[in-house]
Computed example of a mutant assay.
Amino acid sequence: MTHRFPIKEIARQAGLSTATVDRALNDRAHVSPQTKLRVTAAIKELVAQESQLAARGRRLFFDFVIEAPSRFSREVKAAVDAILPQIGTAVCRPRFLLQEIMEEQEVVGALKRILKRGSHGVCLKARDTPKIRDAVNALASAKIPVITLVTDIAGTNRLAYVGLDNAGAGRTAAYLVAQTVGNASGTVLATRSHERFLGEEERKSAFAEALANRCPKLRIVSVEGGGGVSFETSKILLKAMDSILDLRAVYSMGGGNRSILDTLEGHGLKPKVFVAHDLDQENKRLLLERRLDFVLHHDLKIDIGNAFNAFLAFHQLLAEPASVSVSTVQVLTPENVPES
């Protein structure tokens, strides 16, 4: 594997030991394919960031630990790549741990490794569990700031939350369903990727309350799990099909929308309105195919920019304290899909 970086630097970027990186670079035994991919990705990141090294300023390492479907993680990484060139006060190097499903112990293990090796900040999208809260507090106690992305983690000493107004998004979804369905009776399917994502819980609670006020004849059937991953989402939805009668609407809070649509259509069900979240490439295609009616979207670049500003302010590299505000959703339809 050709490269021009010291093994120690690659190891720091990849979050691995120098011995592991050395084995991967020299194609030695007992190196998993996933580890090789992490080393390759680290070298690519170092190449992409090398131009920044000419800039004057402090060099900072930031860790992004994201549990999300790959389609969303790609959007996060693209947003980071777009924001980095705009940062002039320091040379910022991101390190990514992106997995579609991360169990509690995996997240805790990743945060403990970061605590051990050091970091200038952690941007975290993870479930809200007691052990993850403890790990976040341990980082904060070690002066490693943690910013939660899109979904918050309650009762911790995290530095800030960046992302959308989840309760406002839920109320917006209820409004769109009510305007489309009217005073009809029937079922609304509300799907979440996991019960422990606090952001999705906030969306669900606000949606249910607002919909009950606007459309009291509608009944909500909740389906939770699958992590927004297509196969897992379909498997969990199939178990709930008997309870979905007279389907009027779908509010998908956690993704896997093509799988949801295909599963419903396989059972002869077609909602009058389907409201989803985030304009990733899959949802963009579904909108253009007119299989989705509305996508509640917010600009991740704004969120990532807010996160970096909060990190830089924490390290006293900004003249003024950073102001972090939640994002309001944009309502996208097949008629106003942005080209990029």
Rank of each mutant, 00 (worst) to 15 (best):
N257Q: 10
E67F: 06
A138S: 14
P334Q: 09
R192F: 11
A322I: 02
F274A: 01
V76R: 03
D165I: 07
V47G: 03
V47S: 10
G266C: 12
E209P: 00
S119R: 00
V146M: 13
F62D: 00
P94C: 13
L115N: 10
R4S: 14
L37P: 00
I244G: 00
F308G: 02
R219F: 07
I244P: 01
D278G: 01
A24M: 11
R158M: 12
A307Q: 08
K301C: 07
E200M: 15
G305D: 06
F308L: 12
K204W: 12
K131A: 15
A169R: 02
I147Q: 03
R248E: 14
K284E: 14
G88C: 03
P145H: 08
S32Y: 09
A160K: 02
G170Y: 02
L247K: 09
L238F: 05
L312E: 04
L98T: 09
A110Q: 09
Y161G: 04
M1F: 10
E50P: 00
K8R: 15
S252W: 07
I87E: 01
L53A: 14
I153L: 13
L261E: 07
V223I: 11
C215V: 10
H30M: 14
A79M: 04
V136T: 04
D278Y: 06
E224P: 00
A249R: 05
N183Y: 08
I43H: 06
H30N: 15
A82G: 03
V275F: 08
F96S: 09
D134F: 09
T172H: 03
R192V: 08
T187I: 08
A19D: 12
D278A: 10
D165A: 07
Q281H: 13
A178V: 02
G266N: 14
A19H: 13
V162T: 12
I87Y: 04
Q105Y: 07
V221A: 10
T20L: 15
G121D: 01
S222K: 06
I66K: 01
P334A: 10
G254R: 07
N157R: 15
L296S: 03
R192G: 10
P338A: 11
G266V: 01
L189W: 01
G255A: 12
I87G: 05
G121V: 04
K272A: 13
A142Q: 14
A154N: 10
S119Q: 03
Q52N: 14
A307I: 06
T233F: 05
T18R: 09
F274T: 00
G254H: 10
R113C: 11
G163R: 09
D303L: 05
E100R: 06
I114T: 09
T18G: 02
V181R: 05
K217T: 11
A210Q: 03
F72N: 00
T151H: 12
